[in-house]
């Protein structure tokens, strides 16, 4: 045939690829537009603070040492409360995954606790655990507990049953099957559940510092908010955002290290 035409390519697409730096460009652009808008005046000072002012506030925080005065108690609350909630959540989640009675008894309970706004319980926690650190730990622990439970028992349910059958067929003990097959097999699901739990922990940090906290990023934001001091409010919010990105990155590193066996 004389009219030979090349076949047109129509595959491709629908496959996200890594695009380095795009995220940063979006950030920078957005901040630049806001800076320009507040300087030019088409964004009023009451709508959004000027990014450079927020940055200056942040530098002040750093210079006066107030940053760490706020950050250290907040981080302690996040780490202690989060560790308690996540540890208990993994334990209960594994139990639900392994024992039918635990599942029948605890799944409805977890479903009942999950949607409660934990902030609503803060006064109760203050009575139970005191106005000091106890109530703050409890609030963050409870907030991280429920999503961890749900993620963990889902992960245990998703462990390949043929692997468990294999373990049984070789006469492995129950303990060995749990330790060597069920737990490593559910680790990917548990880790991705932790991303959600930690983010919720950071959200609750602000709520936990509503009562009886002089220092803390949450207390700082609340004070600024009460005074409509937008620069300080945004500086505090940026700290929380950075904290979120940082913890997410840490979990990503843990995944890379612990789940090297995945393709």
């Amino acid at each position: 045939m004389s009219d030979a035409r090349p076949v047109t390519f129509r595959g491709g697409g629908f496959r996200p690829t890594a695009r380095r730096g795009t995220g940063i460009v979006v950030f920078v652009l957005l901040i630049a537009v806001i800076e320009w808008g507040t300087r030019a005046g088409w964004i009023s000072n009451l709508t959004l603070p000027r990014p450079s002012d927020v940055a200056r506030t942040f530098v002040d925080l750093w210079n006066t040492g107030l940053l760490f005065q706020h950050l250290v108690p907040s981080l302690t609350r996040l780490v202690v409360g989060g560790a308690m909630g996540i540890t208990a959540g993994i334990l209960v989640g594994v139990m639900i995954g392994l024992f039918s009675y635990a599942r029948a008894g605890l799944v409805p309970l977890v479903a009942a606790i999950f949607p409660i706004p934990k902030i609503a319980l803060l006064p109760l926690f203050v009575i139970w655990f005191g106005i000091d650190e106890g109530s703050k730990y409890a609030l963050i622990a409870l907030g991280t507990f429920t999503p961890t439970v749900v993620a963990t028992y889902g992960a245990v349910d998703n462990v390949d049953r043929t692997l468990i059958r294999m373990g049984q067929s070789f006469g492995l003990s129950w303990m060995s099957i749990v330790r060597k097959i069920v737990l490593p097999g559910s680790l990917p699901g548990i880790l991705s559940g932790m991303r959600v739990s930690v983010a919720i922990g950071i959200i609750l940090l602000v709520a936990a510092e509503m009562l009886g906290a002089e220092y803390g990023v949450g207390a700082y934001i609340l004070q600024a908010g009460a005074l409509y001091d937008l620069e300080r409010l945004f500086a505090g919010v940026v700290i929380l955002s950075v904290l979120g990105v940082l913890t997410s990155w840490m979990i990503g590193q843990a995944e890379k290290r612990l789940l090297r066996w995945r393709s």
Binding site: T162, L163, R165, M166, F170, P184, G185, R262
Partner: peptide
């Protein structure tokens, strides 16, 4: 002792 169709190896 079994040998399974889908190998049943622990990927980790």
């Amino acid at each position: 002792t079994y040998v399974f169709q889908d190998f049943a190896l622990l990927p980790w």
